[in-house]
Amino acid sequence: MFAIFVMVLRYLFLLLLFLSIFKLIKWMIGDLQEVAPQNLKENRIVDYHVKPSPHETGDGAELVVVKSLLSELKPGDTFAAGQEVLLGRDSLCSINIAAAFASAMHARIYLKDGQYWLEDLDSTNGTFLNEIPIDKSIVLANGDKIRIGGVIFQFVRWGHEVDASN
């Protein structure tokens, strides 16, 4: 009786190893099918209406308009980057680009770990960093040119060692 019990335990030991592996693989496949990115976007837009409060701005970075087809934005206009800047046609955006080439929520620039990142918010016409369309968040360096349709901004970050030519 004891011998049978031990034998059963022996095979159970092997079986349990594989059960654990199957469980792992099951969850891994679930992870692959995850469709979170789409859902994420919808939720996000709702919360963007919160504009950065003035005291949060001024980390030593700003956006300067270099070229513009619009009368509202003139070359030389400067915007502080702060914690987060939203660019788009919607009037709620902190940098309002009132033209057809811009999507309502076109792009955003945000501060993370001491670096500024540019992200395209699935815009129709795309966001260009130094004339290259971006498809994911990308770190901004001093002197980078951001183009949205007919408006070009230059990212300026003073007193920072990162340079666009690097």
Binding site: S20, L24, W27, G30, D31, A36, N43, D47
Partner: peptide
């Protein structure tokens, strides 16, 4: 930054649910 909490609920493998799964495994 309420959005962070919202987005976490959508993905099964992260945050609280993920740790729960880890515990089970």
């Amino acid at each position: 930054m309420i959005s962070i909490n919202n987005s976490k609920k959508n993905s099964s493998m992260q945050g609280k649910t993920g740790r729960h799964l880890e515990l089970k495994l």
